[in-house]
Write a protein that binds this DNA or RNA. Structure first.
Lengths: 107, 107
DNA sequence: CAGGATCCCCCATGATACTG
DNA sequence: CAGTATCATGGGGGATCCTG
C-alpha cells in the first residue's frame, strides 16, 4: 500500500504532525483559554475573540477526538457542557506560555 | 471608523495576532529548520518535508515581511540565496523547542 | 444553553511547466 | 539554483437560521 504524501509527512516527522494538529486558526487560542481551567461552551465562545459557534464546535470535536480536550455534559435544562484539558492537553502548557510571551513582546 | 472583526481580534489580543502569523501549515516547520542556522533555498525545500516550491517562496516572503527571516542573495551563477532567522525570529526558539518536545512525546 | 443544519466563498495549498 | 507563472481545488472558515 502506497502512502499519501500528507501521510508520509506526518508519519516521518513528529514536529510536522504536531503542527498539522495545532495549526488551526483557533486551536491554540482555545487551548490557551482552557489552560485557566474548565469552561462552559458559551464561556469559551466569549473568551475566544472572534470565533463563531460552528468553528468552536468543530474545533472542540477535533481536540476531543485527539485526546487533548475532555467534554463533560450534564443533563440539565438548559444543557450544561463543560470543557477542560486532558493530561495530554495540559502538557502543551510550555508551548502556550512560550507563544504568550513572544506575542506580548513582539506583536 | 468601525473596525472589521478580524482586525479587532488581532488588535486586542496579541496571542491571537501571533497565531494569525504562525499558524500557517508550514510556518513553524520552516522556522524550526532555520533554528539550526543559515540555509539555502534548496536546502530548506529538502528539509521541510512535503512542501513545494511555490509554498516555500510564499512563506519565506511573508516571514521576511514580518521581520522574522532575513534573506541574503549573492550574484553568483547559478544564484545563491541564503535564509536565516532575524533576532525577532530567533526569539521564537522557546516556542519551537516546546512544540518539539511535546511532539516527540505525544505524537 | 449547546449545538445542528445549510449555504457560500475565498484563499491556502498543490501540481506542473518554464526561465534568468 | 532560485525562483515565476498558471491553473485548479478543497476545505477551512464564515453567516444565518433553527432546535431539543
Amino acid at each position: 500500500m502506497i502512502k499519501e504524501k500528507a501521510e508520509l509527512q506526518a508519519d516521518e516527522c513528529p514536529f510536522q504532525a504536531a503542527m498539522d494538529l495545532l495549526s488551526g486558526k483557533w486551536t491554540m487560542s482555545i487551548i490557551n483559554n482552557l489552560m485557566a481551567g474548565t469552561l462552559r461552551f458559551k464561556q469559551l465562545e466569549r473568551a475566544v475573540t472572534g470565533i463563531n459557534t460552528r468553528m468552536l464546535v468543530k474545533e472542540l470535536k477535533l481536540l476531543e477526538s485527539k485526546g487533548l480536550v475532555h467534554r463533560q455534559a450534564y443533563a440539565t435544562v438548559p444543557p450544561t457542557v463543560e470543557y477542560s484539558l486532558t493530561e495530554r492537553g495540559r502538557l502543551l502548557q510550555p508551548v502556550i506560555v512560550a507563544v504568550q510571551e513572544w506575542s506580548v513582546r513582539e506583536m
